[in-house]
Design a protein around this nucleic acid. Structure first.
Lengths: 342, 342
DNA sequence: GCCATCTTTGCAAGCGTGTGCAAAACTTTC
DNA sequence: GAAAGTTTTGCACACGCTTGCAAAGATGGC
């Protein structure tokens, strides 16, 4: 049998009321901002609450109001540097906004995103923020119909209803091309994963298109997940060929790191003398002096700020069109020649 | 005014009952494993639930039972590679155990761990897992008295009651010393942060003591947080001196990476020829070929497994003494000479 | 001192669920 | 077919909270 303390497990509003000599309503109102309580009773209640160690039961509160105060973060591979940073920033800001975050792991093994998103319904989450995996349309509908708000970050799916927030991948791709050209590179390549997420593909297509405008072909290599190892594998493909590239735009910093390591340690290439590299995300490791990667930085603060602003302001349910944010290029040392603002 | 659908926001068990032509209890029992329902009614209920899109309201369920199914993860700097990996593994395993994880960010800005831990009480979490920050004793008591279970990971504080899980830091330190000695190193140093967490200090003291047994002094340098930049700073201190070390045990892989980068790029040292390095955690980056760091690996799976096993089995509230896990040394390329199993 | 106005308070009805209890339905046995 | 036993079912209450409503109390103007 479960061993517990002798007294009741939790003190309830009733207990506090009794001790303070007021009604249950009074203590409820004391803890409800904007409710009508006299200063005197408030004091008495607070005192009793303090003494008894009372905490409002958010489960019960959430049952009455329609708001549970819970926001779900739906994310897979959350230990990826960029994802981890985003999760950290989101939880931090959500807490400041008086919300609490429920973390839903959608790593492949245990069912799909759908199962997870359905989980968010069980707890009557006020909102869900999806950092990865695209949910089934029906489930999304279900969530929206349940009054839940949905934010899609970097997933430019064609679903109607959610708040969509994306980067201007096309613009970044053009900036990358012109940076490479200015550095004197002519044999361009694009390193992608085989995942095929819309935003990853937007970078690839944007890069190919922008290069095309200058009459240049792009060698595209895709492999596996968007991780370090894939970067290495792609490097094997690219640098073993007859016409190895002298510039590679990597869809992601993690892949860029893998590609650079393989280029240096297995093919003896010097960066940026023999090879220029640009990445995407600006993860912490890109700033480490072994990489010093020139890369596009994710405006994490802006992403977080606008997401949460939309969640909290229950007004303006608008947001038909996705918010597009700019990802500026951070110049480090993987591109030769003079830098210019991109 | 908030725009909603015309129908009720959520369908309740009552709605399902009405449609299925049974009582509300029948619905409740259908969704309660082990309750007594005839196969026929179960079918009817499931059908109606499906049609209406019914989901058990976990908030209400949690109100009735004493279990909310919520487990809080209390963590700061969660985008650190090791922490992120742990959080990922924990959420994954918790979900498999039918729990859901609430992520509490205790980054310095908004209040201390205490505020966060109190937050876990608001939602009547079944348990809290603390990865960082040591809570006030009073709050811990409060949580325990409320029937909440607490797990402390890598925080060997002297609090009574929580389930404590630690690594055998002392043993690891001894292994590090002998690895350095076998590689012919004689001028040992320890790179630590200024944070002073028990487990970090245990590594330092263990290393100094073990070296002492061989009549060797250890230069100890401490600086800032346990991050990459601190590793660089510590390197400045260590390698600018008259007697620069030829072996450094870093309290953490992140610091090891910083130290190695500074050693190579600012002091022109070759690793492992001029300098041997050992780290701790075995983060992903340690495996990257730019570092190839020999390091102690955190048995994340074991940590997660034993934590959750303890949370779920409400029996055996035992666990007075902390669980000590072994952190094996992963041999890569930052120690010269022949490897031997440690 | 009296009435109108405003604030504070307690009552009671809900929110959506689990569950003990007794009645009802079904099954077995003789 | 009746008695005994087993399962299933519905009622009603509980969980801890919010909130509309009306009564009570405080305040002010005349």
């Amino acid at each position: 049998m479960r061993v517990r303390c002798l007294n009741k497990t939790f003190v309830s509003a009733g207990d506090v009321a009794q001790r303070a000599g007021v009604s249950r309503s009074a203590v409820s109102r004391t803890f409800t901002p904007g409710a009508s309580v006299s200063e005197e009773t408030r004091q008495r209640v607070m005192e009793a609450a303090q003494a008894l160690g009372y905490h409002v039961n958010q489960l019960a509160r959430g049952l009455m109001r329609s708001e549970s105060g819970i926001v779900c973060l739906v994310v897979s591979e959350m230990d990826t540097p960029y994802r981890a940073r985003l999760v950290r920033a989101l939880t931090h800001e959500l807490q400041r906004a008086g919300k609490v975050s429920m973390l839903i792991n959608t790593d492949p093994s245990d069912g799909a995103v759908d199962t997870a998103l359905r989980q968010t319904l069980h707890y009557r989450a006020d909102a869900s923020i999806l950092l990865s995996g695209l949910p089934d349309k029906a489930i999304t509908r279900l969530c929206l119909d349940s009054g839940q708000r949905i934010v899609l970050i970097n997933r430019d799916d064609d679903i109607e209803g959610p708040f969509r927030i994306n980067l201007d991948d096309g613009h970044a791709a053009r900036v990358a091309v012109s940076a490479f050209l200015r550095a004197g590179c002519r044999r361009l390549a694009f390193a992608n994963s085989a995942v095929g997420t819309p935003s990853l593909m937007a970078r690839e297509h944007g890069f190919v298109a922008a290069a095309g405008e200058f009459g240049l072909n792009v060698t595209v290599a895709r492999h596996g997940n968007t991780v370090y190892e894939s970067g290495r594998t792609v490097a094997q493909t690219l640098f073993s060929g007859l016409q190895p590239p002298d510039a590679v735009f990597c869809v992601n910093d993690l892949m860029a790191c893998g590609l650079m390591d393989a280029a240096r340690h297995e093919f003896g290439l010097r960066i940026p003398e023999d090879l220029c590299v640009i990445g995407f995300d600006d993860i912490e490791q890109s700033g480490w002096s072994s990489y010093a990667l020139t890369t596009f930085t994710q405006p994490v603060d802006e992403i977080v700020k606008s997401s949460i602003a939309w969640l909290v302001n229950s007004e303006e349910a608008g947001g038909k069109r996705p918010v597009r944010l700019h990802a500026p290029l951070i110049w480090r040392k993987t591109i030769r020649g003079v830098q210019r603002t991109g």
